[in-house]
Design a protein around this nucleic acid. Structure first.
Length: 277
DNA sequence: AACTAATGTGTAG
DNA sequence: TACACCTTAGTTA
């Protein structure tokens, strides 16, 4: 589930479980063993997320994690005893908080590496504004979008334009604003981008709160969906709904590969752009 | 039990 | 554009 909201959730969770205290770090799977040994027993000062990147700071050593497509970092707090690792655990952190023992297991990540603070800045320099950070400047994203001939559906996935958007937020944001994903960035208007950004901030903050991506307004949910209680996947307008009827107009949702990722959209609600920009 | 697809990114060609 | 990475949830048999 790793889009930006997942990483921000994770940073908070790691901070609460281990922040400010010494942690034991190890790599049961072995691929991060040397680096884990370097931070083992030291104080985790803080964990923070920028877009889909996670940084855990131990003085001048920064553990940089990127979950990629299928990585997970599961944090367990208040356990009576820390269990033996199950499966391929790249990095395990163990600590002790106010509510007992805590441990976290990282598996399947694309990146788990030790960086210097300067290298961390290098990673950050390649990222666009992150809607989940209070200091994010949507104008920086707009400057790229307004000058680009590339399809806006591709621009939104570019982490140098906006940091933290993935395939789900991309598809859903475009639908909610009735924007054709193939429209060139430069055909958008400033006011439209401002509205999309504001919406994205709310959607992603919701994602941080709930741990899922829910983008469908209540009036567009079925009675069955409204009545359903208990854990479930987030609802979407178009993401992974290829061939199903659009929740707004009933047209079958379409899908197509764009830059090696599955794009979903409703060709009726997101009317084809025919401008000359 | 076997098989597929996946919320991502980097590299090679 | 293709695929390597390396894991799991969901589907099919």
């Amino acid at each position: 589930m790793p889009e930006g909201h997942t990483l921000h959730r994770l940073a908070t969770s790691l901070d609460e479980a281990f922040g400010g205290s010494p942690v034991r770090a190890s790599s049961p799977q072995g691929r991060f063993a040397e680096s884990a040994a370097l931070v083992d027993g030291r104080v985790l000062e803080r964990a923070e997320a920028y877009g889909k990147h996670l940084f855990m700071t131990f003085e001048d050593d920064v553990v940089h994690v990127h979950l990629g497509l299928y990585g997970r970092f599961d944090v367990h707090r208040g356990v009576p005893e820390v269990p033996a690792p199950v499966g391929q655990v790249r990095l395990r952190l163990v600590g002790r908080g106010p509510d007992g023992a805590a441990y976290a297991d990282l598996r399947g990540a694309t990146a788990c590496e030790l960086l210097t603070p300067a290298e961390r800045e290098g990673v950050l320099a390649r990222l666009g504004p992150d809607p989940l950070r209070a200091d994010a400047d949507p104008e920086r994203a707009w400057e790229r979008i307004r000058r680009s001939r590339a399809p806006v559906g591709g621009l939104l996935m570019d982490q140098a334009v906006v940091a933290g958007i993935g395939n789900v937020y991309r598809a859903e944001l475009l639908f909610r604003h009735r924007v054709d994903p193939f429209r060139p960035g430069r055909s958008l208007r400033a006011r439209q981008w401002a509205a999309m950004w504001d919406d994205l901030v709310v959607l992603m903050q919701d994602g941080v709160r709930t741990g899922r991506i829910d983008t469908v307004r209540p009036e567009h949910l079925t009675d069955a969906e409204l009545g359903h209680t208990g854990p479930r996947r987030g609802h979407s307008y178009v993401y992974r709904r290829a061939g199903e009827p659009c929740r707004v107009c009933g047209t079958r949702v379409r899908t197509r590969e764009l830059q090696a990722r599955n794009l979903y959209w409703c060709a009726t609600c997101q009317r084809r752009y025919r401008g000359t920009a």
